[in-house]
Lab assay of single mutants.
Amino acid sequence: EFTQISGYVNAFGSQRGSVLTVKVENDEGWTLVEEDFDRADYGSDPEFVAEVSSYLKRNGGIKDLTKVL
């Protein structure tokens, strides 16, 4: 089950073990991109978060400006 990723309007994530599946949706709710990120592939949590965040930004993730990150 996908849940909204904090700080984004149209990005959602689903966690299974160490694998986080993220997706970005358009205004109609269609999935634009979907990608798996395995936490085990990264040396640290900040590196993992930075990679996921960068992916979302590159692929149309819209920041939720009503929330302070």
Rank of each mutant, 00 (worst) to 15 (best):
L65P: 13
I62Y: 07
S54N: 14
I5H: 04
R39P: 02
L65S: 10
R58W: 07
G60I: 02
E47Y: 03
G43R: 10
V52N: 02
Y8K: 06
I5A: 03
S53Q: 14
G29H: 05
V22C: 04
A50M: 09
Q15C: 15
K23V: 08
A40C: 15
T21Q: 03
D36Q: 14
S14L: 13
A50S: 09
S54C: 14
S53L: 14
S14G: 01
A11L: 02
E1N: 11
L69D: 14
G43P: 10
F12N: 01
V24W: 03
V49M: 14
E35I: 12
T31P: 07
E25I: 15
G17V: 04
L69P: 13
N26K: 04
L56P: 06
Y55N: 03
V24D: 00
E1Q: 12
G7Q: 04
D41C: 12
D64S: 10
V68Q: 11
T3H: 12
D41S: 09
D36H: 13
F2A: 04
E1P: 09
L69C: 15
L69E: 14
N59I: 08
L56I: 13
N26P: 01
A11F: 03
V19M: 04
I62L: 10
D36I: 12
Y8I: 05
T21H: 11
E47T: 02
D45C: 15
F37Q: 00
V33R: 07
Y55G: 04
D41Q: 09
V22Y: 01
L20E: 00
K67S: 12
E47L: 06
V22R: 00
W30M: 14
N26W: 05
N10W: 04
A40L: 11
K57H: 12
R58A: 12
G60A: 05
S14K: 14
E34L: 10
N10V: 06
K23R: 14
Q15F: 15
R58C: 13
I5W: 05
E25Q: 15
F12D: 01
D41G: 06
D45R: 06
P46K: 15
G61K: 02
K23L: 06
G29T: 02
R58Q: 10
K23M: 07
N59A: 07
D64F: 09
F37I: 01
V49H: 14
L20A: 00
Y42F: 11
W30A: 13
V49T: 08
T31K: 06
E34Y: 10
V24S: 01
A40N: 13
D41E: 07
G17E: 03
E28W: 10
G60W: 08
N59R: 02
S44T: 08
V19L: 05
S44W: 03
R58G: 07
I62E: 05
D27N: 11
Y55D: 05
V22Q: 00
G43Q: 11
G61I: 06
E51I: 14
Y42L: 01
A50H: 09
V19Q: 03
G29W: 04
F48A: 00
R58S: 10
N26T: 09
V68R: 11
D64V: 12
S54V: 06
E28Y: 12
K57C: 15
W30Q: 14
T31V: 12
R39N: 01
G43E: 10
E51Y: 10
D36G: 06
K23E: 01
E25R: 13
P46I: 14
W30F: 13
E51A: 15
Y8S: 06
V9K: 11
E25M: 15
T31A: 07
Q4S: 06
R58K: 13
Y8P: 04
V33F: 12
W30S: 10
E35R: 15
V19A: 01
N59L: 08
L32M: 12
A50R: 09
D38T: 02
G7L: 06
K63G: 07
L69Q: 14
N59C: 12
L20Q: 00
L65N: 11
T31I: 11
E51V: 15
V19T: 05
E34K: 11
S53P: 02
K57I: 10
K57N: 14
F37R: 01
E35W: 12
T21I: 07
S14M: 14
S18G: 07
V19R: 05
L65W: 12
R58Y: 08
E51G: 07
E1R: 12
E34I: 14
Y8R: 06
V9F: 07
V33N: 09
F12Q: 04
D36V: 14
S54T: 08
T3F: 14
V49Y: 15
V24I: 14
L20I: 07
S6F: 11
V52Y: 05
W30R: 14
E34A: 09
R39M: 06
Q4A: 10
D41A: 09
G13M: 14
P46S: 15
K63C: 14
D38P: 01
P46W: 15
G60L: 04
K67H: 12
G7M: 04
A11I: 03
F2W: 15
S14D: 02
L20R: 01
G29A: 04
E34T: 13
E47I: 06
G13I: 13
R16Y: 06
T31E: 04
S54E: 15
A40K: 12
G29M: 03
T31S: 07
E51W: 07
R39T: 02
L69V: 14
Y8V: 06
Q4C: 15
E35D: 07
T66A: 09
S44N: 06
K63E: 13
Y42T: 00
E34W: 11
N59W: 13
K23G: 01
E47N: 03
G17R: 02
E51F: 10
S6C: 15
R39W: 07
V49R: 13
F48W: 07
T21Y: 06
N10Q: 03
E25H: 10
S44L: 03
S18W: 05
Y8L: 04
V52A: 01
V19W: 03
E51N: 08
E47W: 03
Y8G: 06
S44R: 01
E28I: 09
